[in-house]
């Protein structure tokens, strides 16, 4: 994986300085545009009293479970659909109909079916992850050059062995593209779902802050969303670099 250079942080540091100066000059009321230092202060105080940790963990666990289950089933379904054209033909119309529906579009139905409990955000994240990852996996499996399969056949490999040792590893770059994009998307969706329908988590905290006109808390929540999206995406970039070493050679 490419090492991050210190120079890459310079624009970020510059932005924070500008933010701090503009916040302090008083052009805009501090209530509407708090300086960076005040956001940091509220962050520390929320960490200290446990509010931030509690809400963050709620969102984090929902994303983790929903995303894990969604990607696992997405990869599995994608593999069997990409590998077997009969299964692909049977399931493809269903996937094609359901895939374009935005994850949040499911919210009203799921609220009525499941109710407002922990299962609701997990299900939303599951749906948000499943379809794109399934689609990317199908594309990945299909994009493997058929000649590699022919070579493996002449070498005496069984179908399962070909799938396990040739097709799946060669489809990994595509699968990781799906995982990387959806890992970030899962965070965006959970925040939106919590804002609309779930009373706990970072999204809900943000909505409470809005009703109290606490811009510092809203910005803090947005920063957490941004950092988590970034970290999740980076995690999959790292994982991809470890599992597809051959691509970097």
């Amino acid at each position: 994986m490419k090492k991050t250079k210190i120079s890459e942080f310079i624009p970020l540091i510059f932005l924070i300085i500008i933010w701090e100066i503009v916040g302090r000059i008083g052009f805009i009321s501090k209530g509407l545009f708090p300086p960076f230092s005040e956001v940091l202060i509220i962050a520390f105080s929320f960490i200290k009293n446990g509010i931030l940790i509690e809400n963050f963990l709620k969102s984090f666990i929902r994303v983790l479970i929903g995303f894990f289950l969604g990607s696992l089933l997405g990869i599995f379904t994608g593999i069997i659909m990409g590998w077997n054209k009969y299964i692909e033909r049977s399931l493809s119309p269903i996937i094609s109909i359901l895939y374009p529906i935005p994850a949040l579009g499911w919210l009203p139905i799921l609220m009525l079916w499941i109710g407002i409990n922990e299962l609701l955000p997990i299900t939303i994240i599951f749906i948000c992850s499943f379809f794109p990852i399934c689609y990317n996996t199908i594309c990945g499996i299909r994009s493997v050059d058929k000649n590699y399969i022919r070579v493996a056949r002449t070498l005496g490999a069984s179908k399962i062995r070909i799938l396990r040792t040739i097709v799946f590893p060669l489809a990994l770059p595509n699968i990781f593209t799906g995982l990387r994009l959806e890992a970030g998307m899962a965070w965006r969706v959970i925040i939106a779902a919590e804002m609309v329908a779930i009373p706990t988590g970072i999204g809900a905290l943000m909505m409470k802050a809005e009703s109290l006109i606490r811009m510092d808390i809203i910005i803090l929540c947005l920063l957490i969303l941004s950092i988590m999206t970034f970290l999740f995406e980076k995690f999959f970039v790292y994982l991809e670099s470890k599992t597809t070493k051959w691509k970097l050679k």
């Binding site: 000649n147 590699y148 022919r150 070579v151 002449t154 597809t244």
Partner: peptide, 18 residues
């Protein structure tokens, strides 16, 4: 194919890249 006892060198080789 796999049981025909053949060794096949394809035109574009197709060495498994991974």
């Amino acid at each position: 194919s796999g049981k025909r006892e053949i060794g096949y060198l394809f035109q574009d080789l197709f060495l498994f890249p991974h």
